[in-house]
Design a protein around this nucleic acid. Structure first.
Length: 798
RNA sequence: GCCCAGGUGGCGGAACGGUAUACGCGCAACACUUAAAAUGUUGUGACCUAACGGUCUUGUGGGUUCGAAUCCCGCCCUGGGCACCA
């Protein structure tokens, strides 16, 4: 059999589609709109990854189906091109990042085009294009004007190897996400974005959108909202107050000591009353030296009692001890806690180690002789004076009232460190004037372009290389006209990707980031697919930016994405990550060369469930290759007239139904197996009608656009298959005349017979009992019960 | 430790509570060929049986049900996320 000539066919149709602008999205149309979005790639030097191909094929399949269903489809692509790898490459080679980016995007563009994705290439964007980052800077200025961008001295995660401050999100178990070196703490003045102001909004927004449940959970956990109260403890014999945050004010009678974090100000405040100050100070020093990693590895509780001062439990005026311990964090709540060892596991552990009193104040009715751990469940109060007998919810209210506590909500979410002391990012459009402080650059002066420099290395003092470009740094203050210095920090690589879905809508607009009418037409994104690894960072950030832009009235919807799904990773053979060092990276170019784009597309959709990780298997791809060749053979060996085998007609109808449904569920693997079964049937058919065969080509088209387009045109069709209509199926034709009746005895299958659909229970019973294998078993036994499931089975219970 | 997802042939994986192992890979035999490749046809969970047929089998132990891979409870393992957040 002749192998189909994919090389010729792929090229021919890619050229044709490009010339005809087949996948161009129309701004405004009488058709219903559909906006499909995939995470735009970082154009690395390694070229396109087969993981990109998996995600992009999935939404390409969906977008193509929508187009055939009559939608005006926007499926855009671009480049998320700012970031460290390119800059590090520039530092090493001296080649300018602009050049590196151009070379890499050229490669990516060629590779994506070779896959036959139905992107609207006229809307291609690049975050490093000044015409793009002009608007990233513009959005920053809006944050600045609304006091949601501010500069402050904070402790930052400092990577001594990359010489860069990292966001919390970029620190993975105490190490730099990129280079793996241990992260140090360093104080630095940094730009921050006040994402915490949107914590509740980001949580509430989740209720109205269709994200995979695990994605919602991860965002919820990341925001980490908890409700509780702040309660003041006086320090005995002083005017000092120790404020704590607790989610369990109901356990206040069980608070037997307090703990402050090593950074807590009470220690310096009451320094001269503390009798063991030297011991305390040496503990603090030791705690600070511990790296993040050590703290994670060794969770053994440590701490020192602060002698000379005591706190007073406000609910019963009891004096209790105060400790300093590093299990209390300075960055959360008030940096001090009331310890209730009976009902908090960490406090219990600490109390056990230091032999501190434990008072049980919540009971679930059981009496425990010996406490082996904290009881964190619900129950009724005991040992709590006037509150005895209350349930914990009521007690929370009552005790907060009694001690004049204040209800408070705390979040794990921190403000977003938005500064990077690097070169390859968007300059932050602010100047520092000695008289006026930080002043926004006027919008008309945007973009603030990156100056062209030769040395991209961050300075040893931690400042951006931009700080060395004197001619660029010196400027005048837009407010007073006096001398001023430009901000030399640049934005993190998350900036450009936080709003790119908006720019696709109007990518060439010079006056505004996107025309409001166009935004009104296209937003929200109907379906967004990307990796799980971006769920807490990119996805949350971009929701934050969109919500903010909505609040200031420049975008039409509060939430950017209606629906979000995630694909599983594509791993190398044997289930390990693909990496250059392992030498197991699959280059899509090689696969396309050997099998063509359609085989690769089909294989990546077929190899496993879309949301699960899968390992590449160079043998298995043969299966999809053979399948396409079989389709090719059918097309060239059969005649497509008006006659059609009943069986074939029915199976094609069923295939149309199943494939349509499976695409919506992202069950691409079962859609393809259905089409394989159908092809096998067609292959052995006597006669296939042209109508039926065209339906088949149509459902295969989104998966394998090139071969189907070729076969479609061979049939004499002049207009492209991909703008033809999605086929309907006939419900009546799907119903089988006969079915396999399963005959069970006590739930065990003993026989199966082919019989007419709709057979009555009486007839089925009669038929079943005639079966030798059934009658033999039943003989001489009493039939206690007969279970009959229409068109499926009959079960005799004996 | 907590939160998610998952555990099915030699392998990737299918299965509205109703014939477990679809589809694909691999393997075997046969056809075509001088031969190989390609392609086609057939077979392919394990065990017992000459055969008809039977027994067992979806990580593991229980339970619900006429009937459980599927629902419920306990346990074990793998992958991902968070991690002393009061």
């Amino acid at each position: 059999m002749k192998k189909y000539d994919f090389q010729k066919i792929d090229k021919k149709w890619q050229k044709e589609w490009g010339e005809k602008k087949l996948y161009k999205a129309e701004d405004f149309s009488t058709k219903k709109k559909w906006y499909s979005l995939v995470e735009f790639p970082y154009p690395s030097g390694q070229g396109l990854h087969v993981g990109h191909v998996r995600s992009y094929t999935a939404l390409d399949v969906l977008s193509r189906k929508r187009r055939m269903e009559g939608y005006n489809v926007l499926y855009p692509i671009g480049w998320d091109a700012f970031g460290l790898p390119t800059e590090n490459y520039a530092v090493k080679t001296g080649i300018h990042p602009v050049k590196v980016t151009k070379d890499n995007t050229d490669t990516f563009r060629r590779q994506l085009k070779a896959m036959g994705f139905s992107f609207d290439w006229e809307r291609e964007i690049n975050t490093t294009d000044p015409e793009y980052y002009k608007w990233t800077q513009w959005i920053f200025l809006q944050f600045f004007k609304h006091n949601l961008a501010y500069k402050t001295i904070t402790k930052i995660n400092w990577c001594p190897s990359c010489k860069i401050g990292l966001a919390n999100e970029e620190v993975v178990s105490g190490s730099c996400e990129r280079c793996g070196s241990g992260v140090e703490e360093k104080e630095k003045e940094q730009w921050m974005l006040k994402i915490t102001a949107y914590a509740d909004k980001l949580l509430e927004g989740l209720e109205s959108i269709d994200y995979l449940p695990e994605i919602k959970r991860q965002q919820e956990n990341w925001i980490g909202r908890s409700e509780g109260a702040e309660i003041d403890f006086r320090v005995s014999g002083t005017d000092s107050i120790l404020k704590v945050f607790t989610t369990r004010p109901d356990t206040l009678y069980g608070a037997t000591y307090m703990v402050v974090s090593p950074e807590h100000k009470i220690i310096s405040e009451l320094k001269n009353r503390i009798s063991n100050i030297e011991e305390i100070e040496s503990y603090i020093l030791k705690a600070k030296k511990k790296t993040e990693e050590e703290r994670i590895e060794n969770k053994e509780k440590t701490g020192v009692e602060i002698k000379g001062i005591k706190a007073i439990n406000p609910v019963n005026d009891t004096e209790i001890q105060i400790f300093v311990a590093d299990y209390v964090l300075s960055g959360y709540g008030t940096g001090a806690i009331m310890a209730v060892p009976a009902h908090d596991e960490r406090d219990f552990e600490f109390a056990k180690k230091f032999s501190l009193p434990v008072i049980v104040v919540i009971s679930d009715g059981k009496i425990r002789e010996q406490l082996t751990g904290a009881y964190i469940g619900t129950g009724t109060l005991i040992n709590s004076g006037p509150c005895d007998g209350m349930d914990i919810e009521k007690a929370k209210e009552e005790i907060i009232k009694r001690v004049h506590g204040v209800k408070k909500v705390q979040y794990h979410l921190r403000d977003w460190v938005f500064s990077r002391q690097r070169y390859w990012g968007e300059p932050i459009p602010v100047v520092k004037c000695e008289r006026c402080g930080y002043v926004a650059v006027p919008e008309k002066d945007l973009p603030i372009e990156l100056p062209n420099i030769k040395d991209f290395k961050p300075r040893d003092d931690g400042e951006s290389p931009l700080a060395s470009v004197e001619s660029w740094v010196h400027t005048t203050c837009p407010a007073c006209g006096g001398a001023a210095r430009r901000e030399t920090d640049v934005m993190p690589n998350w900036a450009g990707s936080s709003w790119y879905f908006l720019r696709y809508i109007d990518p060439k607009n010079k006056d505004i980031f996107a025309d409001p009418k166009k935004l009104q037409y296209w937003m929200q994104v109907d379906w967004y697919n990307g990796g799980m690894e971006h769920v807490t960072l990119h996805l949350l950030y971009s929701r934050f930016w969109n919500q903010f832009l909505f609040d200031i009235g420049v975008v039409p919807t509060l939430e950017p994405y209606t629906k979000r799904t995630a694909h599983g990773m594509v791993l190398g053979e044997g289930g390990v990550k693909m990496s250059k060092s392992r030498g197991n990276v699959i280059n899509p170019d090689d696969v396309i060369k050997a099998y063509g784009a359609d085989t690769l597309r089909l294989y990546e959709m077929f190899m496993g469930p879309f949301n699960q990780s899968i390992s590449w298997d160079s043998k298995s791809i043969e299966g999809t290759w053979r399948f396409l060749n079989r389709v090719w053979s059918i097309a060239h060996e059969k005649k497509f007239g008006s006659e059609c085998d009943k069986k074939v007609e029915q199976i094609i109808e069923k295939t149309v139904k199943k494939v349509g449904e499976d695409i919506e569920k992202m069950a691409f693997n079962t859609a393809i197996s259905t089409m394989m079964i159908c092809a096998n049937e067609c292959y052995s058919a006597e006669a296939i009608s042209r109508t039926a065969w065209e339906k088949y080509l149509k459902v295969l088209a989104p998966f394998a656009p090139h071969i189907t387009e070729e076969l479609w045109s061979e049939l004499g069709n002049e207009k492209s298959l991909h703008i033809s209509s999605w086929p309907e199926y006939d419900q009546k034709k799907i119903i089988d005349d006969t079915f396999t009746l399963v005959i069970q005895v006590n739930g065990k299958t003993r026989a199966t017979i082919e019989t007419n659909t709709g057979i009555s229970e009486k007839d089925a019973k009669e038929l079943a009992l005639k079966q030798e294998n059934v009658s033999r078993i039943i003989e001489g036994q009493e039939i206690k019960k007969v279970i009959f499931v229409s068109n499926r089975l009959i079960n005799f219970v004996i």
